[in-house]
Design a protein around this nucleic acid. Structure first.
Lengths: 124, 124
DNA sequence: TACTTGTTTCGACGACTGTCGATACAGGTG
DNA sequence: CACCTGTATCGACAGTCGTCGAAACAAGTA
């Protein structure tokens, strides 16, 4: 098909897609609510470090016992932050015997990354 | 100088660079604090829509008068959110006569986008 | 069973956030 | 000057968030 006529994207379509750069088309209200939850999960320094600690850990996953050491906050607080990351869909978790392991869900990060992609070469 | 010897990245350097994917190396505490502020600015649906509305607006910039219409919140609230975006370094603004114009700072978005880039092909 | 270790949940507290109406400020017009 | 429009700031309020200690739950060991 030709693209002679300009494509018209309505808000709903942007909301469903929700993965294309936000600089190209306005975000729908529903998509914004959904994405805001993910960004909120990233809006705390401890959670940001937790995420990168998990992602960069050997094997791509880390036990909670690996994650409590590097922080000044209590272990229940770490557990709380991990729960926030999990409920935001940014990490997965599984119990194996005594320990609970967490890993990053790459698709979620990629989704946010794509959304923020800006045309730096053109307008910057 | 040659770069024959392998480069060693310590935490401090990661904190300064703060633009490489967080999945490769743990984020430093200072970098995490800095980045969390930006993500916090993105953690509200109204601000997310404001940002995409500004970015996708004709000419890459939008007057505040273009931004108050699409929302159910009051004008002072929009002004507040724009201030948050500006103080987070995500948008720039300038007064021209009666109107105030806002535009997206692409480098900031690119910085966050790069940080979130995940190796989807390898581990996902 | 009792005990130990790893992890989550609970309840509480202070701090921060999003929202509003009222008000102040900036700039154009008559 | 007075007046109007566009935008930002102020002060207040309800709701949310990050944190803690205490307690509960999960799983292994003796």
């Amino acid at each position: 098909m030709s693209n002679l006529e300009p494509k018209v994207l309505d808000q709903d379509e942007a909301a469903v897609a929700c993965c294309s750069p936000m600089v190209r088309e306005p975000l729908g209200e529903a998509a914004a609510v959904d994405l805001a939850k993910m960004f909120k999960a990233l809006s705390d320094p401890v959670r940001l470090r937790l995420l990168s600690l998990i992602a960069s850990h050997e094997g791509g996953e880390a036990c909670v016992c690996d994650l409590t050491g590097p922080f000044d906050v209590s272990q229940p607080t770490i557990s709380h932050h991990l729960k926030v990351l999990r409920e935001a869909g940014l990490v997965g978790s599984e119990r194996r015997g005594t320990w609970v392991y967490y890993w990053v869900l790459p698709a979620a990060l990629a989704k946010l990354s794509a959304l923020l992609q800006a045309p730096t070469g053109e307008s910057g």
